[in-house]
Design a protein around this nucleic acid. Sequence first.
DNA 1: CTGAAAGCGCTTACAG
DNA 2: CTGAAAGCGCTTACAG
Lengths: 338, 338
Amino acid sequence: MISRPRIRDVASRAGVSTATVSRALSNPALVKPDTQIRIREAIAALGYVLDGSARALASGRAHTIGAIVPTLDNAIFARAVQGLQTTLSNSGYQLLIAAHEYNPDTEQALVRALLERSIDALLLVGTDHSPQTWDLIRGSRVPLLVTWSKTDLQPSIGFDNHQIGRLAAQHLLALGHRHLGVISGHCLHNDRARSRVEGFREALEQRGRQLPESHVIQQPFGFEGGRAGLRALLELRPRPTGIFCGNDVLAMGCLFEAQALGIDVPGELSIVGCDNLPISSQLTPSLTTIHLPTHELGQHAAGLLLQWLASGQMPPNECLPIELVARGTSGPPRKAAR
Amino acid sequence: MISRPRIRDVASRAGVSTATVSRALSNPALVKPDTQIRIREAIAALGYVLDGSARALASGRAHTIGAIVPTLDNAIFARAVQGLQTTLSNSGYQLLIAAHEYNPDTEQALVRALLERSIDALLLVGTDHSPQTWDLIRGSRVPLLVTWSKTDLQPSIGFDNHQIGRLAAQHLLALGHRHLGVISGHCLHNDRARSRVEGFREALEQRGRQLPESHVIQQPFGFEGGRAGLRALLELRPRPTGIFCGNDVLAMGCLFEAQALGIDVPGELSIVGCDNLPISSQLTPSLTTIHLPTHELGQHAAGLLLQWLASGQMPPNECLPIELVARGTSGPPRKAAR
DNA sequence: CTGAAAGCGCTTACAG
DNA sequence: CTGAAAGCGCTTACAG
């Protein structure tokens, strides 16, 4: 079995030097049109495919971006990654992806693994990362883009997670709810979850109300977490009539459990989620939630990264607009229940 | 700003040659324990991170796998990718991921893009790929693993998609349904969708029944596709009382549309999906569907790939077990409706 | 617009 | 168990 053709094979078939083939491939403007044509013919005839590791080594550009997300098992990250990948791909960049499943040690190992793959930039979700992770990244001199959270300490593109919590609280308060609870993912190592709860609490305190710790249930992300969260909140007296869930998956779990328990939503219980997954509007009742433009986040992140790599200039921090979408799972508390 | 440390910096700090450092990193058994320790100390002190492109060029191993899936926007692929990535990562491999969004030209461009990134193996979904795509892969000599479909022409790990259709048909027939319809994704360039419809049709024909083309509605994957599919099937006379949907997303769309139209499920209409997404069991009524172990598929695919790369031997074809899960959206047709 | 040649940072037979 | 050295396949100043 003969080995793959190399750039020298293309060069000799086209009657030029390897330098010229290389230029024709990466900077065609430098090559005379008819030379280009001969080279393209040779490439096609030989079925030549560039060796990216050699190119990366020689040029210092791997044309590859690394991204580490908490999980792909939540549509919200999957969609963002999809947007990221598509946009990168259109500019000749490919995506190395990994998921840490909310484990900081895993994240650290993945950061190292990706840095060892010669990536041109790294994308991470949120601002909570172990000190060793930060050291690794700093030492590597690889540009880092923080996503999902906004921070001034790093180039970032994200959402105002405090505002998410505030919007949820304001909505429930405006409807007349006075007994509120929160179902959140684990806040440890998760600044998004923490900020959302904090924002919710702040908005309550602004109205002279409190959100005691006992009214914030932390659960693993997932339907079961939402269900367990609701069961826990139902133990409280007085029972909460309005619940903010840290994301739509928890909110759906909460809704499904309420339905299973025969609790009327929104008559007896209002639920507000966050993300606005495609399915959220399809359910009956459909989910009141905070819309996060995550597909756009992926695309914008890709754009920022490409610009950064092309210009060498740190991109500005971007904060994407969010919006509460009032739907069927939230309404005024029923008089009878008060 | 000083540049990143290189292997020669580690070597001189540890008082050994670069060859020894290299061995300590990739094959520690060859290096004396105390030498190893000195090397590890030097690595830690300098914050040395290996350059993967140089390693790949010198060794011919990129420790990277490429995977192209139709989309990450369907949880089923996202879950499989997650399983794949986790397993690969545990063995020191990373994952380059891309999505073609059901466009064969995009797929071809992505295959080329990934092959140009020095991948050790490539994973594709299904058997339908353009001739040029096949040529590219063959010419590249990169091992190819086909997933989701079973085929004897390539190492593959997948499901018996014909059997999926057959199981759905048998279930609906056994319940007593005589007027059946199918909502499928577009079958062009999608052997999984095609096989499922064919399997469904075969099972009907085995019982002396037909499935005319008019009873197979092809729609884009998505809730709206499922909804439109149902509306189209409701035009038929006699109305189908049992519908097989090519995946759970279509099935959910179909269910949501039925609920919106006031059609009783399963009283007036039985629905069978495919995939068994986590949400399928949470809905009311919960979805009768065919369970596909997709997370396992990802893990097994990773295992096959790793074994293949380690041994150089083509792995055996694997076919993963599938199973119909009867739940709330299917039942006997109501007498009145017949 | 093009070519000769050095060099990117590793790995790995080969020799000891 | 370790080192010297060639070589992996590109790119890119440099010179023309």
